[in-house]
């Protein structure tokens, strides 16, 4: 009977761990940048938001820049891995017009990225049309 009780406890713990690990966090970190008109002319304004502390301990957004290729906004984001092992992540770009409304919310897919230990890697994307004035990158672990 005792063995059975221990067995029951083991199954309970295993199922519990399985159920918990099934719910991996899908939140990540995001960074946005816009070209804004300030008192001293145009300047770049960027900010980073962390919604997943474990991911923020693994990577850092070191730079968020946007330039114009013709009239299309081109985004460049530098990511740096703080870990020593390889990270498999996914990222997605979102684009906003001058009023802050998202352009074609359903159009850009999640894309895979591999960052090796302590590596700095840049990801780039181009806005879907000339109305984009601001971009946002979302990064999260692969599910």
């Amino acid at each position: 009977m005792r063995i059975l009780a221990y067995f029951g406890l083991l199954v309970f713990v295993l199922v519990g761990v399985g159920a918990l690990s099934g719910c991996a966090a899908t939140s990540g970190i995001s960074g946005s940048a816009a070209v804004v008109k300030g008192p001293e002319g145009y300047m770049q304004e960027s900010r980073v938001m962390v919604d997943n502390d474990s991911l923020a301990r693994a990577i850092k957004i070191t730079d968020l820049k946007s330039t114009f290729a013709g009239d299309l906004l081109k985004a460049n984001v530098m990511l740096h891995s703080k870990r020593t092992d390889t990270l498999a992540l996914q990222y997605k770009f979102r684009w906003y017009n001058s009023q802050g409304i998202e352009i074609e919310p359903e159009s850009s897919p999640w894309q895979p990225i591999i960052i090796y230990g302590r590596e700095t890697k840049s990801v780039q994307a181009v806005a879907p049309n000339p109305s984009a004035k601001e971009f946002k990158i979302e990064i999260r672990y692969r599910e």
Partner: peptide, 9 residues
């Protein structure tokens, strides 16, 4: 222990 087993299951 039996209670423990039953509740575990």
């Amino acid at each position: 222990r039996d209670y423990f087993l039953i509740s575990g299951i």
